[in-house]
Simulated assay, not measured.
Amino acid sequence: MWGWAGLIIRLVVGGVWIVAGALKLPDPAASVRAVRAYDLLPESIVPTVGHVLPLVEIVIGACLVVGLFTRWSAVLSGLLFVVFIIGIASAWQRGLQIDCGCFGGGGQIADATSKYPLEIARDVALLVASALLVWRPRTRLALDPVLFPTPTEEARP
């Protein structure tokens, strides 16, 4: 039963990362603007984070979708969701009116604080899904068992 449920979780979380990263790639300046809007990082590293983050998201997503290095990809996924939850909560607490930049865009927007609870809830749900994949990384239709079989998987006909 877990194998199919795990596959669905892998595809959902991985798909979210791929979409999020792919929507940021065409406009790197918007990604940098989104990172800058949080006002949490030193300005010297904001451009690097803004440019690298979409690529990291796509790689994590692709690994989850194909089931490659699932546990480690899920660990990185979970860590990123924790960072995003902290960032959104920090913006909310400081009264910033910014687009989360999660799926492109970013910067100042009106009435952003009304969106923060839903964004945090979404990221918490995806964090829990990532944690499930850390706990049980072996799922259906994954490359991990093919490339890195356990002794019981090697014995199967």
Rank of each mutant, 00 (worst) to 15 (best):
Y38Q: 02
L68C: 07
L127H: 08
L41S: 05
V16T: 07
L96H: 15
S77L: 05
G105W: 00
D123I: 07
H51Q: 12
E119D: 11
C100A: 14
V59L: 13
S44Y: 04
I120A: 14
S44L: 01
R33V: 03
P117T: 11
A110L: 13
T70I: 00
L68I: 07
I85T: 08
G104Y: 05
L23T: 01
L80C: 07
L64M: 15
Y116E: 04
L40N: 11
S114P: 01
G106R: 04
G95S: 11
I98W: 03
L41Y: 01
L127D: 09
D111R: 07
Q93F: 14
A91H: 02
P42D: 14
E119R: 11
D111N: 10
D111Q: 08
T70F: 07
V49S: 01
G21Y: 01
L64G: 15
R33A: 05
G107P: 08
V128A: 10
C63N: 10
T70Q: 05
S73Q: 02
S90A: 09
V56A: 07
V35S: 05
I109P: 08
L53G: 08
A74R: 01
G107E: 03
R36N: 06
V35N: 03
D99M: 06
L76P: 02
C63I: 08
H51D: 06
V65I: 14
C63P: 04
A89W: 14
V52W: 12
W72R: 09
T70A: 02
D27L: 00
G106A: 06
